[in-house]
């Protein structure tokens, strides 16, 4: 991950700022942003426009293939409308992605700020904790915990956040450490600003660029993580649909009803790719060295 320089100059209007212009030039990023916008809108509005709800069971019309009848994307093993479930699942998966990201960012930023600002023993201890957490291959940690907890949307969100804050902490810590030596920070400290004020008012705003990039990539990671946990059967429980658990109940029917696996998987890939495109675009846009 390339480290972005802090943007010190105030931006001349958001839309026309150099960063924004660079972002808009980044076609993939624009594509990603548009896709996410559309996806979110579809998930919010879509379910209201459909004649079926995501939990309506109709055993007689089970396993209807896509594009062949009243169910546009077909039905699942209980005869529920896949499109309705896909959109409702999107709400859950996107919500899980964003909330897990928010929590992970909060933890990561605080740990990174404290470690970077104080350095010394406290900083070292915190960063060793980060290193230790990174020693676990992420899926191992996710599975070890998810096999042991009672699955619900909040517990899955927490679980994902707990296993994905470390990279953020590292990025922030490095950023803060380099910022600390700058004149304007030294000045602030010498004028008697409190540590808290220095950390959150002076240092943090100047570390925003890499944080925004990390946050975007974190959403992508969280959506993927949810799908892994759910795929392995430990995730969000029925009847609540999520993109991941739609896949979980789809594997046994890979030969007879492949659309059950293909549709939610494609949705996950689309969403995650879009977030990654945005992250990439943001990185380029916020990286002042580019021009």
């Amino acid at each position: 991950m390339s480290m972005a320089e802090p943007m010190l100059a105030p931006a001349p209007g958001f839309w026309n700022s150099p960063g924004m212009r660079r972002f808009r030039r980044h076609r993939l990023a624009v594509f990603g942003a548009a896709t996410i916008l559309l996806l979110t809108l579809a998930c919010i509005i879509g379910p209201m426009l459909l004649p079926y709800t995501d939990t309506f069971i109709d055993i007689r019309s089970r396993f209807a293939p896509p594009f062949s009848g009243p169910h546009i994307l077909g039905t699942d093993p209980l005869g529920r409308d896949i499109l309705a479930r896909l959109l409702m699942a999107g709400r859950i998966s996107l919500a899980v992605g964003f909330s897990a990201m928010a929590i992970a960012m909060a933890i990561g930023i605080v740990v990174g700020l404290v470690a970077g600002f104080y350095e010394g023993a406290l900083g070292a201890a915190l960063m060793r904790l980060v290193d230790a957490m990174l020693c676990f291959p992420s899926i191992f940690l996710l599975l070890a915990i998810s096999a042991l907890i009672q699955p619900s949307v909040p517990s899955i969100v927490l679980l994902i956040a707990m296993t994905s804050w470390m990279e953020v902490a590292r990025v922030v810590e490095a950023q803060i450490r380099s910022l600390k030596t700058r004149e304007f920070v030294q000045a602030s400290i010498s004028f008697g600003a409190s540590s808290k004020r220095t950390m959150f008012r002076v240092l943090l705003p100047n570390a925003v660029a890499p944080i925004v990039v990390a946050a975007t990539l974190n959403v992508a990671h969280a959506i993927l993580a949810e799908s892994y946990i759910s795929f392995l059967g430990f995730g969000i429980q029925p009847p609540t649909p999520s993109w991941g658990n739609m896949l979980e109940s789809a594997q046994s029917y890979l030969t007879s009803a492949p659309w059950l696996a293909i549709i939610p998987g494609a949705a996950i890939t689309l969403a995650v790719t879009s977030f990654n495109f945005i992250g990439d675009g943001l990185r380029d846009a916020l990286d002042a060295r580019q021009d």
């Binding site: 939990t55 069971i57 055993i59 093993p77 209980l78 699955p151 392995l232 059967g233 430990f234 995730g235 429980q237 029925p238 009847p239 979980e248 109940s249 046994s252």
Partner: peptide
């Protein structure tokens, strides 16, 4: 048990 698809389907039928 989580991940038991048939049981999960069964639960949803009984629920209805």
């Amino acid at each position: 048990t989580t991940g038991n698809q048939l049981r999960e389907q069964c639960q949803q039928l009984i629920q209805q």
